[in-house]
Design a binder for these strands. Structure first.
Length: 418
DNA sequence: TCTGGGGTCCTGCCTCGT
DNA sequence: TCTGACGAGGCAGGACCC
């Protein structure tokens, strides 16, 4: 298997036993921070926090130097600064991260056609069919690390195992800049002592529910009764965890991924009470969703909105449309109608619009789709709304502050749809 | 202290049709 | 014609992932 390296990592050498393995999980180390260092080498070795320096933003990524102070992704930037006052705050450059990601994925695809990108900075590789070309899975993992380092200039960690779940756990443990190989015959010995929280799919809530019943390790999951696990986390997650705890994971590396929903949401710098403004914002988000639908040649039959109030309570409402559409005006009108059904009038900190139940465009025929005249009208209306509210949104939001909606607050269940 | 944005999946409740 | 059982699907909320 692997051995401790004195820095808290467990790593393997390239000649480690990799019998029975064929899946690699490759994960870039502190990816956003690494790209920033790549573009500005003077940042190397500094504690870096990637996130907008003001407003309500959270940490997107942090360099390992900043993580030593307790800075973590998803933490409010203000809190991260308190933990690490000497950190350099770098605003995120997502287009640049995507460009570097494409470079890295191209390296993966030059090694095996079976690549499943999980996000901008990680992917599964199935190397079963390319061993004669590149060597054993451990040798291929080493090749991936060397090529990413030499050709892109950043480091990554690789887990090698018989299944996706174990490969992912292995890459996490080998971070940063490491490699951990788990031979198929070592899988159970590797899994058993690990904490339940290390499993893919177990977050804070599920971990708390399991630990509250004395289930602390993966071995505990494997040996607990079905009834107890069902009570703790529900039958679906329970069944999945039992399988994973035994090292069973039949999921293949999937190169094709079909999107099931497309959405946009936005948190205001200050909470908004102006209903007209919020309606215009919904229209603007609907237009962005529709643009993405059209680009992907999809249409949606269900529109959903999300409203988060100043107390962080979040409501969602959704509606199935009479006709599928990819027209921003249609989606926007549905979103606005859903918004009007919510009686609570408290200041709003976030609004979101999502298109669900997607299908290829043109399947059922929608009147507006090919009609130039309607298109001009719809796009004109959207442009109008954007011109009135869109570009001025953040600046105006700063000045609006809290309105007088609090007095009209009602329990969300009182709106009649619940 | 104060919690982003983009997603997927699951659960529970409700309605509707058979 | 009325009623209850049952499954399918819609909807709302929440947990989880990166």
């Amino acid at each position: 298997m692997g051995h401790g390296d004195g820095r808290g990592r467990i790593v393997s050498s390239v000649d480690a036993d990799d019998s029975g393995t064929s899946i690699l999980h490759v994960d870039m180390d502190a990816f956003y921070a690494a790209v920033e260092v790549l573009d500005d080498p003077s940042l190397r070795g500094l504690p870096l926090i990637i996130g907008a320096p003001d407003g309500r933003s959270v940490v997107s990524s942090a360099s390992y130097e900043a993580r030593r102070y307790g800075v973590r992704a998803a933490m409010p930037v203000s809190q991260a600064i308190r933990l690490c006052p000497s950190a350099k705050i770098v605003p995120p450059h997502f287009h640049r991260y995507q460009a570097v990601s494409r470079q890295v994925m191209a390296i993966f695809e030059s090694i095996t056609p079976l690549v499943e990108p999980l996000s901008v900075d990680e992917a599964f590789l199935d190397v079963r069919g390319v061993r004669r070309l590149w060597g054993s899975p451990a040798q291929i993992a080493q090749l991936v690390r060397e090529r990413v380092s030499e050709e892109v200039g950043i480091t990554c960690s690789v887990g090698v195992a018989a299944t996706k779940h174990v490969a992912k756990m292995a890459s996490t443990i080998s971070k940063p800049d490491g490699m951990l190989v788990i031979a198929a015959s070592d899988t159970q010995a590797f899994l058993d002592p690990r904490p339940v929280r290390a499993m893919w799919g177990v977050g804070p809530k599920a971990a708390e529910a399991l630990e509250g019943r004395g289930i602390r390790t993966i071995r505990d999951i494997r040996t607990s009764s079905t009834e107890m696990l069902d009570r703790a986390v529900g039958p679906a997650l329970s069944a999945r965890l039992v399988q994973l705890s035994r090292g069973e994971d039949a999921r293949a590396v999937e190169t094709e991924r079909i999107e099931k929903s497309i959405g946009h949401e936005e948190t205001f710098e200050t909470d908004i009470s102006d209903r007209a403004y919020l309606r215009a914002e919904l229209l603007r988000l609907a237009d962005r969703v529709a643009a993405r639908l059209r680009k992907a040649q999809w249409e949606t039959s269900t529109v959903a909105i999300k409203i988060r109030f100043d107390d962080f309570r979040t409501l969602s409402r959704s509606q199935t449309l009479a006709e599928p559409t990819a027209v921003g005006q249609r989606i926007g009108e549905a979103a606005q109608a859903l918004f009007e059904q919510i009686e609570r009038r408290d200041p709003v900190r976030l609004v979101g619009v999502r298109a669900e139940k997607l299908r290829p465009a043109g399947g059922g025929g929608i009147g507006l789709w090919d009609d130039d005249e309607d298109w001009r009208r719809v796009e004109g209306a959207v442009d109008d709304a954007v011109a009135r509210f869109g570009s001025a949104m953040i600046g105006r939001a700063r000045h609006l502050g809290r309105g007088d909606g609090r007095g009209a607050a009602q329990h969300p269940k009182a709106h009649g749809l619940d």
